[in-house]
Design a protein around this nucleic acid. Sequence first.
DNA 1: CGATTTTTGGCAAACGTTTGCTAAACGAGC
DNA 2: GCTCGTTTAGCAAACGTTTGCCAAAAATCG
Lengths: 356, 356
Amino acid sequence: MKNNKDMPIEEHSGPLMADVARLAGVAISTVSRALANPGRVNEKTRAKIDAAAKQLGYTPNAMARGLRVGKSSTVMIILPGSLYYGVSQVIPQVLQSINKALLQNGYTLMIANLGRDAESERHILDLAFGGTVRGVIILSSKLPEVDGRSLANAGLPIVSMLLDMSDAGVPSVVTNDREAVRDATAEMIGMGHRRFFYIAGPRGNYHDVERHAGALEALRDAGIPQDALSLSGGDLDYHEGFEIGIQAAADFARLEERPTAVIATSDDMAISFVSRIQQTGLRIPGDLSVVSFDGAPVCEFCFPPLSTIEQPFEEMGEIAVARLLDAIGQEGREWEPCVVIRSKLILRESMAPFKS
Amino acid sequence: MKNNKDMPIEEHSGPLMADVARLAGVAISTVSRALANPGRVNEKTRAKIDAAAKQLGYTPNAMARGLRVGKSSTVMIILPGSLYYGVSQVIPQVLQSINKALLQNGYTLMIANLGRDAESERHILDLAFGGTVRGVIILSSKLPEVDGRSLANAGLPIVSMLLDMSDAGVPSVVTNDREAVRDATAEMIGMGHRRFFYIAGPRGNYHDVERHAGALEALRDAGIPQDALSLSGGDLDYHEGFEIGIQAAADFARLEERPTAVIATSDDMAISFVSRIQQTGLRIPGDLSVVSFDGAPVCEFCFPPLSTIEQPFEEMGEIAVARLLDAIGQEGREWEPCVVIRSKLILRESMAPFKS
DNA sequence: CGATTTTTGGCAAACGTTTGCTAAACGAGC
DNA sequence: GCTCGTTTAGCAAACGTTTGCCAAAAATCG
């Protein structure tokens, strides 16, 4: 005795729409309409159907639906290689706000991690071209692209977050990295500081380029020569921020003319830098003022409390989602290519007026 | 002139398996077999088919496949309400290791956030019962359950991480919260400390229960009365760790007989506690030793460097995935109900011998 | 009560795969 | 040339929905 021709597996498959129809005593098409289109069916039968569905614990099969309508309702977020930062909760905060906004609109969030390997790129492209996802939020500067297929041609709406990719035609939601650092530097200048030390992220990285430019702009605006800004770092990635700060402290010690103000491109760098610098006997803010980027809450509890530029992760996430859903819904709403949400300098004791 | 009866939408839908078959000059069923079953088709035609697929940029439609075979290849991770912790990178580290392990096995990670609202529960159950996901990793103490449907009955393999839910029949992967705190406390006792201050997480929370019990065990083992352990906290959630630490510092100041050793249930609490305590003039570790839980890297750069119990997030994630995939694959491999991976105490300056 | 509108039922096709089956094509060995 | 074994073609059903269509039923109204 053998199974019927086509026998999938004897899995627990749950009640079907047909079962609901039978129980409610209506046609299967009516059930479908009742569950999807609110209006197309009489209120009374709709209630009957709802009751039947609830009684059976019916849940529509997402794949069957997705296949038929040709759309999924999951959004993919592409995270850069390393999710790990020392102290600032970039990823959790971003995920939290994005997920919340998506949930409210009936979407689900899928995670993809874009490493340097072709395998992870292929995986992402399979998701994009295979109809699994409906839209993409990307936190990486590189669009996945491998043998012919490119995320750009998947026919999916894409929104870039944290990095401005509007030049590449990708709508973006970012913060004002450059201005924020420029203003913070100007603040330092206003406090009398004239020699600066810049602790850099990976060379060529968008954030580092912008923030460095911001610092230089502030000097220029104040008529201070550009070489008043010493540089450290550039070789390590942000997730190695603590190490960058340590190296920066060593670099700093070797300088002849000591700067009096430090601008770090992440809180991690500032924290380890401060720790090492204090061990050499220098005092903050007495000898050296420090400001950094990201706005990690822990900065408040450092010794001394650290000034930092707080990124509006929550708001950026919400706007990125709104923008993506607009694009999915084909709403004609007009967006500027790159939406900028301002960061906010939080002044704490680590920044103080220069005393000669 | 009107569309054909059933006209979905004119979307960019990409090449189909039929297109590949045509280009390769073979039957569609052969293409399907060539792409799935490695062996069932002649090597030469397989190469021809691969070439055709590559040339067209063909990607199989995941939903059609999933519908037909009745299985998806995405795994859902259920995160507790708040993903945000002050300083320890719990979520990113867990996500990173889980995602990596899943990717290597061809699975994709989907995120679900379990809030207190019924809506988020419903959403999760829809994913589980709707065939979208193939397995679940849960970091929350509560299994989603709403009007009749419960995640426990979805017929899906579930693995709990961080919390031991093996009593509820959910296979678990955890660290040894209790022992780790017991050992750290014993270490304090060995250093001569006799009065302790425990900064607690939310009352009744698994981690808090375990860790508190661990501290008490150490006292008992050393013959120290249980009331040598003063308590603070219990009202706020872990994501408000900084606030807990602040309140604890205030509580501490009110004690008559000052403890000399502090055990905090998260690094956040320890950091803000230390910050506030130092403002009152007390010195660490001179007057007070401190140890906390989680192993945030930033602890190394605090003043003084903080002792902390480092959780093996990476390893827990890998094992949780291995275990889940075993369950999915129906592998008969035997697991103990609850796998325990040991945490590691990292001794730093914040812990020092008691000096009267 | 008859005419008109609203709501359902029933049917069937479609979404893009997978898979079992039979028969045909092909190559090799006798 | 014949047989045998391997490989492929071709067909068709199935996965569980959605949706257009038309006719039937029910409700509404004058």
